[in-house]
Write a protein that binds this DNA or RNA. Sequence first.
RNA 1: GGUCCCGUGGUGCAGUUUGGAGUGCACGCUGGCCUGUCAAGCCAGAGGUCGCGGGUUCAAAUCCCGUCGGGACCGCCA
Length: 619
Amino acid sequence: MPPRCQSRGQISSATCSRPQPASESTKRQGSTLVTHNPNAITALRSDLAGELRADDQGRRVAVCGWINARREHSQHLAFIDVRDHTGVVQCVVDNAHDLRSEYVVRVQATVTRRAAETVNPNLATGEIELKDCEVEVLARSDPPPIQIDARAGVDENHRLRYRYIDLRSERMQRNLRARALVNSALRAAMQRQGFVEVETPFLIASTPEGARDFVVPSRHSPGQFYALPQSPQLFKQLAMVGGIDRYYQIARCLRDEDLRADRQFEFTQLDAEASFVSQDDVLAFITEAVGDATEVVTSERTGEIPRLTWLEAMERFGSDKPDIRFGMELCDLTEVFATTDFNAFKAPSVKGICEPAGATKTRKQLDELTDKAKQWGAKGLVWMKVEPDLSLTSPVAKFLRDDEKQALVARLGAEPGDLVLVVADELARARHVLGLLRLELGRPAVNEGSLSFLWVVDFPLFEGLDETGAPIPAHHPFTMPNMADLELLDSAEPGVLLKVRSQAYDLTLNGWELGSGSVRIHRPDIQRKIFDLLGITPEEARQKFGFLLDAFGYGAPPHAGFAFGIDRLVALLVGEENIREVIAFPKTQSGADPLTGAPTAIDPRHLDELGLRLSPDPR
RNA sequence: GGUCCCGUGGUGCAGUUUGGAGUGCACGCUGGCCUGUCAAGCCAGAGGUCGCGGGUUCAAAUCCCGUCGGGACCGCCA
C-alpha cells in the first residue's frame, strides 16, 4: 500500500517525544504515520477508534480499546465494537466467540467504507468499518459488574465501588475531560492577568476558626498535630506580604463537615489574591476566569454578571445565595399587619410568598409544607388560597380584617388560583424559612435552564451575636469593613454593629455558592479594633494568628482575594446535579470510599509510634 | 444531632398498601442456531441469606422494633 498523504498533517518522528516502540512487533507501520490526531499515535496504535472517518478509507490502522459490544451472526460473520475515549468503531470479524465484553484488544485492520445500506448514521464512525482484522487480546475481563452503556441508572454505591469501570462511561469521560478543560482555561486566564501560581503546604497549623479540621498526628512530636488546610487563606495573604503581587492556585481544600450533593471533604478551589486592588478589580479578575471556563465547556460566553447587595438578596430571596432563575420573591407584609388583632402575626417581621397556581394543593400537602417550615425553625406557617373574587380561603381567614386581606393580596400581586404562604417571626427567621419554602415550591433542578451567575456584595461584617453579646464574623476576622461604615464600629449598640457592611462578596450560580472573597484588613489599627469587637484579646490574637500579625508589621500591601469551587462550577457547566459526578474518586455521604474501603483502622504499632491510644469504644 | 426516601439473582426494577410456595419484567451471563448487524435476533439454561438481627403470626420480601449501608435535605460548612 503506498503511503497516503492526509490533509490533516503529517507526523514526523521528530515531533513525537514519546518512548519508542518496545519491539519490532509493536512498531507502527510505515504508512500509518498519518493521522487525525498526533496524540493518537503510540507504540500500539495509529488512530483513535472514534476518530476514523470515510476519508481514511484504505488505510491500514491499529486501534486499541475495550470491546463495547459483540454481535455474532454465525460462525462466519460477527461484529465487535471497539471503544476508546473518543468513541466506538465497528470491526468485522469471522468469529468473535472468544472476544467478550470489556476485553482489551488491539485491532490492526483496513478502514473500509460501508455499503450504503449498512451505514449507521447514529455513529460518528458509521460510514466506515474495519475489515481484514487481526485482533490481539491484550487483557481479558470478567463480566463487568457495571454495563458501560447501561440503559437504566446504576446504584451509586455500586458505581463508586467499581469506579474504574464507571469511569469508562461516556458521561464520566465527558465530565472529567470538561473538568480538565476548565482547569487549563482557569490557569490560562489567571496567568494572562498576571497571576503567579504558588503552591502552599498541606500540613499546617490548626487554626481555631471555621470548619472542623482534618488533623494529622506528628511522629516527630507525639501529641502534636498538623491540620490539613481548609483553604490556603493565611498563606496567600503572606504571599502578598512577600511581594508576589498576584497569587493563584488550583488548591485542594479539606473540611471535616457533613457532606451534601455539593460538598465533599476534599474539594478544589481556584484560589486567588492580589495586591493594590479594589473589590471591583477582584470581581473583574474572577469574572474573566469564570467566563473563560464557561466558554470552554459550553461555547458560550457569560456576559456581565449581575450584582445584588446581600441585603437585597436576603429581602427578596431569603438567601445569601439566591437562585434568580425564577421569581416568587419574598414580600414584606409587616406594615400590612402592623395593627392586626391576629396574635400569630404580631411579630417583628411578617413576610410572604405567592406561588402562582399553587392553590390546587391538598390539605395533606399543605400540612407537609407546614411541617417543613417548623423543622426549618418557624413557629408555624399560614397558608391562604386565593379565590376567583380575590377573597382568601385559609384556616386563619376569620382572624384577619378585610382591609388586611385586601392589602395582602395587593402587596403580593396575588391572582386567583395562587397560594400564599406567610411566616411571622424574627426578621432573620422569616427570611430564612420563606427562602427555603420558595426553593421547595419553585426551584427548577439546579442543572436546568440557563446558567445564572450572580455576585452578592456588601455582606455584613457580623452575622449575629454570640451568647456573650460579642458579634460573630460573617466571613473571617481579616475582612475589611466598608470604609463608609467605619465609624459605626465605634458604636456600643449591637444593633448598629450588625449594620456594618464589609468588603466581602460571594459568587453564586443557580443557587449554589460558588465561592467568596473579601478585601483584607492590612491596617493594624483596624485589625485591632475588629479583634476587640470580636472579644479576641491581643494575647489570643497573638496565639491564633501571631505569624500573620507579625508579617503585617513589616509592610503589608492592601490586598483582596477570592476563591471558588471548581467542583461545583464544573458540575453545573456539564449539567450535573451532584459534584460526585465530576470527581474521579469521590466519597459517599458518610465519608467512606467504597472502592478503597477508607477510612480504615491502622496498625496498633503505628498508633504507638504516634503516641496515640484509642478510647475503649470509639463508636 | 434531626427529617424523609431507598435496600429483592451479576445489574436495574415490579411485587410490600390488603401476609399465603422466591412469583414476574428488562439487561447481563453460559450453551446452541443464524453471512450485514450495530443497545442484533431466535431457542435453551444457570443464577436468590428479599441488607442484617429480633418480634407478631399457622404462615413474613410484605406488619412491628432495632441495626447496617446508600441517597436528599435541616443543623453544621469563619
